[in-house]
Design a protein around this nucleic acid. Structure first.
Lengths: 334, 334
DNA sequence: CTGAAAGCGCTAACAG
DNA sequence: CTGTTAGCGCTTTCAG
């Protein structure tokens, strides 16, 4: 025998059926929006359910339907405030769509693939991969099993894997234009980690547009992570080529850079050097930084991702939304 | 008939049993650490399971055991970076303990109580309530159902509800001592929202110690939320009494305050006014702020909370860990 | 539109 | 230690 009889008994569909003198399957159908049940019977059932405190047991349902109403959000950690914000909004949006969010945290550097089978067991309906990598083989496997997979803010070569991200390349091009228009000529790019698609795209956009404008890059600095510390570290290297502007691959790098420049290197921003970031996290707007940046329209991106995760995506699976240049005080007037 | 035959069939315990010529229940027992199965049989089963790709189905297990291996983390949103950090560490710790984390986000201001029944359905094993309020009635109900409930960083009058938090009162007392020792005499307290236990405790500790030291508070400013904006707003009010030190109820308030003081009010920190916060979030250490604060030992707190959520808490259910004063540049040398 | 019946995959008495 | 036998609570054919 299963279950623990000492625990308070929940009302089951069978109890309800008995109380109403109908079959148990009718109860089930009454809770299925498309189930064929006489209108009056459905009403009677729903009313009685409410009165008796009956709620369909999602676990039992999940066992037979192989769905769970749960979406797993796969993330690599919340060190970057951008992802805290994304997670927050994503959870809210999923909740609104009637889904629960399972947080699946992948230790930095580790691959998701090995751990995904563990999730399969939970009959998770969809996967939103927000800050980690997943092979298109695994993605395909999930989709064959009729479970949606959406990449958030990252893309993969295989364009059949649905993804929603910001137009990183376009955003970076705008940065190049702004800096050149404001008269900067010695530009430095502080890159994010090489293996991230965000960095690849931002770097490509920035460099290409710069080339088109006939203004070659003065230097390119590498970093090992999107972090304040790495930005702080990179800033000193960046200064070695006497730049008049630095574009950091994202905001958290830029903030670290700004602090190093101002506090330690005696550089005035924007008088000596202009600085630009990418993301528009909360802190970029803080008066101490007042950072010019490219805003990722998180709300819109989350909306699209949730839609793709819960209803499937119509049309082109690879979705990009434009970023918006936010002008603040860290770039000189020109 | 249930299930969708078009989907790839998973290997079940029955398949495995048949393949091995043993009973299905033996398979089940083989996966139960305490199940009585001959050593050699267990080995044979585990090996075959591995080979055939069998994994016990957690949903089916959950249906009969009424447990799920899932812990729900209830939070009110990630606006305060402190909670992003907590969430991150909590998810990591739960993962290590073999649990999954369900993120349950309660819209600010809303009560958890009404939405909790929805969670019951998922056979969630425990609740960690991190930034929201829960009535002790509901908490008691869950515990009667043998599901653990832990309050994180908040306490409730009823001391039977397990909680782990920082010694807010003690931390605030240290702040009072430091400020007075460094010669400050016109002190202002910028309070957090009245309804939070963190504010109540920090305020009480600060005020009491100040009284003991014979240095009354010059003013107390109210805020509506633990946010940068509210700190920014409150800073101006605080200055109206010409203070020589301001203690903000937490870091994010303090950071907002610092920016207002410096950028708009022309106040030099710490020359004109000393500033102290509470939490020690990442940003407090950023050179632009260099904020003196009381560090909450998040890792330790998370460890205790996870322990309480997964194994139950031994001894006193209300647990407090001491905070550590972190001296930085925002307080004058004395 | 309705009811009967057969599962979904696993756990847990119970007897041997 | 092992197999048999009931469930856990719901969904879904299939007849009527």
């Amino acid at each position: 025998m299963a279950g623990d009889p000492s625990r308070p008994k929940e009302v089951t569909s069978r109890d309800l059926a008995r109380a109403l003198g109908v079959s148990q399957s009718m109860i089930s159908r009454a809770f299925d929006p498309g189930g064929s049940v006489a209108r009056e019977n459905r009403e009677r059932i729903l009313k009685a359910a409410d009165a008796m405190g009956y709620r369909p047991n999602v676990i039992a349902r999940s066992l037979s339907t192989r769905r769970s109403g749960i979406v797993a959000i796969v993330t690599g950690g919340m060190d970057n405030p951008f992802y805290a914000d994304v997670l927050d909004q994503m959870a809210a949006a999923l909740d609104l769509a009637g889904y629960r969010s399972l947080l699946f945290r992948v230790p930095p550097g580790q691959d998701v693939d090995d751990q995904l089978p563990a999730l399969r067991q939970y009959n998770v309906d969809a996967l939103v991969v927000a800050s980690a990598s997943i092979s298109s083989r695994i993605a395909e496997e999930w989709r064959r099993d009729d479970r949606r997979v959406v990449l958030f803010n990252r893309t993969v070569r295989d364009r059949s894997v649905p993804s929603v991200s910001c137009d990183n390349e376009g955003g970076a091009r705008q940065v190049a234009e702004l800096l050149v228009a404001r008269g900067h000529r010695r530009l430095v790019y502080v890159a994010g980690p090489q293996h991230t698609s965000t960095n690849r795209e931002r770097e490509a956009g920035f460099l290409r547009r710069l080339l088109e404008l006939g203004c070659p890059l003065a230097a390119r600095i590498d970093t090992a992570a999107y972090s304040f510390q790495e930005g702080y570290r990179a800033a000193a290297d960046a200064m070695s080529v006497a730049p008049d502007a630095i574009f950091f691959a994202n905001d958290i790098l830029a903030l670290g850079g700004v602090d190093r420049l101002r506090r330690e290197l005696g550089v005035r921003i924007p008088d000596d050097v202009s600085v630009i970031g990418f993301d528009d996290i909360q802190m970029a707007a803080w008066p101490s930084y007042d950072l010019t940046t490219v805003r990722q329209p998180v709300a819109e991106m989350v909306r699209l991702a949730v839609e793709a995760a819960t209803e499937g995506m119509a049309g082109e699976p690879v979705r990009q939304v434009p970023g918006e240049l936010v002008l603040r005080g860290s770039v000189r007037a020109g």
